[in-house]
Simulated assay, not measured.
Amino acid sequence: MNVNSFVTEKVINQSQRFVIYKAKRRSDDELVLIKTLAAETSADNILAKSLKSEAEAAIKLNHPAMRKGFSFLGEESTPAFVSEYISGMSLAEYLLQNDGKAKLEQSLIWARDILHALIYAEEQGYHHSNLNPYNIIIDEAGKLYLIGFGKEREAWRHSEGNPRYHFPLLYVAPETYNGSIIKANSDIYSWAVILYQALCGHLPWRLDSFSSPEENKGQSLTRGVILPDSDKVPDWLYSVLLACLKNDPEDRVESNLALLELLKMESIDFDWDIVPFKEPEEVEALPVVEETQEPEEEEILPVEAEEAPSEPDLEEDTEPEIEEAPEPAYEPETPIHEPYQEPPAIDEEEI
């Protein structure tokens, strides 16, 4: 299969480094997404390797809260990553269209879905390290999909972002931002920033509108977390977020599984233990138990009673004979019912 196996319909997104197309596969007309290098970067081998790494991760990882990868077309001139097409928008765009935030119940569902996806990815040997609202897709039904596993570690440095929105580097864990170090709990920091923003409509720290993204990132590492309204963030959840937003990874919740256990212990009226969109497991049929044959009842022979002596003086009661009434005589010429007569035939031409 090559690029000619698809028909592109439109450009979904174009940056200085990549172009993303909505396309249709010729063999079965299935809609797909094709990500390839932009014309300006078509000769960039580092970007081509990053795209291949992203494709390999998406093909390997199979989770209901992740966009599924199909193939990587490795032609030297036009390397392309083919994946599942999802009709929706990024979480960044969703928040822009909804006053910067989402409802509490919806935010918790998305946070749970992300966390379960991170746990699964870690079991497969992957950390995201670029977790931000641009790498989260919300489909038309409100279902969440993670994208971007396998990208180069510092992809967030090259992201152009959106001038109307926060740059991806503001979601990166401090150890990753300062030293390109990825810890087992680095994604937890990003997870907490995203959840805080979805609930409150702004990032956890005060930012200066006149400062650059890099300056705001540096300032965020020295500023305290803004205390949210309790109607937006419940007290139990705020304490969990604070534990996730520690600058030092040694002081942060240690792992994704530990975070899940903490949420299950602290949360009120919300089930964090449900894997999102999990297919129902097949119930194993119970073994058929053969019916036990009931034992045959022993035949009980009647005990022969001694014959009673006959009493000659007693007369046997005899039922009177009832004479049958004679059947009425019918004359054979007179039938009981009139015989059925066929109706006269109708000539079709007369109708």
Score class of each variant (00 low, 15 high):
298 E>I: 15
157 R>D: 04
118 L>E: 00
177 Y>W: 02
42 S>W: 04
234 P>M: 03
309 P>H: 01
197 Q>H: 10
47 L>N: 03
231 D>P: 02
196 Y>K: 04
53 S>Q: 05
71 S>F: 08
278 K>Y: 13
135 N>E: 15
227 L>C: 04
195 L>Y: 08
77 S>L: 13
55 A>E: 06
75 E>A: 03
344 P>D: 15
256 N>L: 04
322 I>E: 15
106 Q>Y: 10
56 E>F: 13
221 L>E: 06
284 E>N: 09
66 M>K: 00
343 P>Q: 05
192 A>N: 00
153 R>K: 15
232 K>Q: 08
140 E>R: 01
341 Q>I: 10
141 A>Y: 06
113 D>N: 05
285 A>G: 15
160 E>V: 00
306 E>H: 09
242 L>W: 04
282 E>A: 15
55 A>K: 09
239 S>L: 13
52 K>I: 05
67 R>A: 14
62 N>A: 08
72 F>A: 01
139 D>N: 12
172 V>Q: 01
91 L>S: 00
179 G>T: 01
114 I>Y: 00
199 L>Y: 09
267 S>P: 06
158 H>D: 10
329 A>G: 04
180 S>F: 12
43 A>I: 12
222 T>M: 05
103 K>Q: 15
98 N>K: 02
263 L>T: 03
35 K>V: 10
255 S>I: 00
